[in-house]
Simulated scan of single mutants.
Amino acid sequence: MRKLWAIFKGLVLFIVVLVIAMIVTGWNVPGNKEVPGGHQTDEYASPYIYMVERGTGKAVYEKKANEKAYPASLTKMMTTIVALEHIENLSASAPVDTDTYQKMVAQNASMAGFYGREKVTYRDLLYGTILPSGGEAANSLAIHVAGSTKQFVKLMNDKAVELGMTRTHFANPEGLHDAKQYTTASDMAKLLDYALDNQNFRAIFTKGTFQTTSTADHPQGIALTSTVLSSLNAEVQNGFEILGGKSGTTYEAGQCWATFGTAGNGEYISIVMGAPLEDISHPDHAQKKDTLELFANLSTRQ
């Protein structure tokens, strides 16, 4: 009898210790939902999330926000703000660089639709980088601003240090996968928060469509469309409005969105990264669903 009682007490002690360990370490148990401050959750498909209120800097929601993630074309937000801070005249001629154009075509990168040597302007390249996520536009900006993509990447990393993006490193301007190009959701939020204070960046980031300059290759220009805003046209946004965004997708990075919107009287930045991707030709847009839910949940608390 004493032996059975000892076993029973040992079992009870084991269960108590196990429960305490689960609470302390944040193990995910059925029914847990992540709250600001961050326990793990299965509520969202995206493994890395950071939502912050602009102005106050208050984190509204976070999930593995400081863990390493690949940025894919969210990289182009840094490309664009760095370029803007080095360009004196957005209307000046900035022809599409032929060598990097051919490399982007060979690597099946997303493109804005420009041709090699096409005589576009800096403004065209900037909108081409953000709205349709053009790889040829991003690399052409890098060449014109810094003389080479290598030198431009140095400017990108210098800016990351300046902004306190301590867990970020860039390796190229266009966002194609590179193991040495990584970031975190919270670092991407820092970047976007900073960039939105630049009025030219904000105008580009929140533009739904843009018609590029007439050239010999495209006499009518090219109609550029935001990959984010165009996908939200049919979506109901009750109590909030997503004003702009940047998408990014590779198999390694998964499906990523960086968005900027309003709810109540506040402005908010949402970063969702790493939503699972099985077929890049037929994505399930889980990052969009996560983003809309984040904003919807935010609006209910206003």
Rank of each mutant, 00 (worst) to 15 (best):
M1W: 09
W5V: 15
W5C: 14
I7W: 09
G10Q: 07
L11P: 06
L13S: 14
F14N: 11
V17R: 04
A21H: 10
M22L: 15
T25Q: 13
W27T: 07
W27Q: 13
N28G: 12
V29Y: 12
P30Y: 13
N32V: 14
G37R: 01
G38Q: 13
G38F: 15
Q40D: 14
I49W: 01
M51D: 01
V60P: 00
K64H: 13
K64Q: 11
N66Y: 15
A72H: 03
A72S: 07
S73Q: 08
M77I: 11
V82Y: 03
N89A: 09
L90P: 04
L90N: 06
A92M: 11
S93W: 13
A94S: 09
P95H: 12
P95A: 11
D97C: 09
Q107E: 15
S110K: 09
Y115C: 08
Y115H: 11
R117P: 10
K119A: 15
K119L: 14
T121V: 07
T121L: 08
R123K: 15
R123T: 07
D124E: 08
G134P: 06
G134E: 07
G135I: 05
E136K: 06
A137K: 05
G147Q: 10
V153G: 00
V153H: 00
K154G: 12
M156K: 03
N157S: 07
L163E: 10
T166M: 15
R167S: 11
H169L: 11
P173I: 11
A179R: 06
K180V: 02
Q181P: 03
Y194R: 01
A195Q: 02
L196A: 01
D197S: 10
N200C: 02
F205D: 00
K207V: 05
K207E: 13
F210L: 13
Q211Y: 14
T212V: 12
T215E: 01
A216Q: 11
H218S: 04
H218Y: 05
P219G: 01
G221Y: 01
G221Q: 01
A223T: 15
T227E: 10
V228Y: 00
V228C: 00
V228M: 01
N233L: 15
V236A: 08
Q237Y: 01
G239K: 00
I242T: 05
L243N: 13
S247H: 07
T250M: 07
A253V: 05
W257N: 06
F260M: 02
T262A: 06
S270P: 02
S270Q: 06
E278C: 04
H282T: 08
K289V: 13
K289I: 13
K289F: 04
T291V: 13
N297T: 01
L298N: 00
